[in-house]
Design a binder for these strands. Structure first.
Lengths: 145, 145
DNA sequence: CTGTGACCTGACGTATACGTCAAGCAAGGT
DNA sequence: ACCTTGCTTGACGTATACGTCAGGTCACAG
């Protein structure tokens, strides 16, 4: 094992539980989060996270892992990376989270409106497709004879 | 008015109603269909339509207009241009439309499954967002005091 | 000395459905 | 002769979220 990787996750054999504060290498972080290393570097490029460095190697602390959870949640909710970046940025520079919560509320409502609209569109499309389905079946049944 | 355009839609002044069979220039076709000229050329490139030519100018007959309606409908239903192209191709080379109807049925069902799945996902996302909405409001209400 | 593994930094590729120039031709009007 | 209109064919641009090389460092194993 190279010193480079072991400096972080295994330099104290037999003392794994004591390694300082859950610091993870990029491999461990991506594993734990279920994303690729590329994704972690990408988010870093976009300014969403700022892992520490040991030499040139990235080090992911609990803070970064927490931010990543928020980011992934934001993605599941359909926010773009840019939007998520704005939330996090506000979150950082807004001690009592008032501005932040307000913007979040706004964005949430916009997104809800979008989703409700999409839902209607999908429902319409579904019923249109169902009628096509029927017609196709009838057409095929006729030719079956 | 240039001869080029008038050859199609206006060469018989006073007899506009008699111009042979609803032939349209690209401008008229795009106008009637509510798409841009670029779109018509794009679909032609992709092989979805084959308008005739008078010299180098495209001529849209009722047949092309009909195909365009099908194409636009397919798009509204969420099929990709490639899929639509396949339908039309089958439609062309399948006299009694049995193969065609079968493929259509398959694709329709796949799409329906997708949409129902999407609907569930959207419903989940909506309720998650609604709970975030509540929490944001509470947070703001607290800070309001 | 060389191979191997984990990491690093660019930088180009991907998919979709067109939008947006750019440059050019033909023909009628002024 | 020149301008304008309508049309033509390329060909590059757009947005998003990464995927996928290519090329290079570092340190230890054999």
């Amino acid at each position: 094992m190279s010193e480079q990787q072991e400096r972080i996750s295994g330099e104290l054999p037999g003392f794994e539980d004591m390694k300082q504060g859950d610091l993870k290498s990029i491999a461990e972080a991506s594993e734990a989060l279920g994303v690729t290393q590329r994704t972690l570097r990408f988010y870093e490029d976009k300014g969403l996270i700022q892992p520490g460095r040991v030499g040139s190697m990235r080090v992911y602390s609990r803070r970064e892992m927490g931010r990543m959870q928020l980011i992934l949640r934001g993605k599941r909710l359909g926010f773009s990376i840019r939007e998520i970046g704005e939330f996090l940025s506000l979150y950082d520079h807004d001690p009592d989270q008032v501005v932040q919560a307000q913007r979040m509320l706004d964005a949430t409502q916009e997104r809800l409106a979008e989703l409700r609209h999409q839902r209607e569109a999908i429902d319409q499309t579904i019923s249109e497709l169902e009628s096509i389905e029927k017609m196709s079946r009838q057409h095929l049944a006729k030719k079956e004879k």
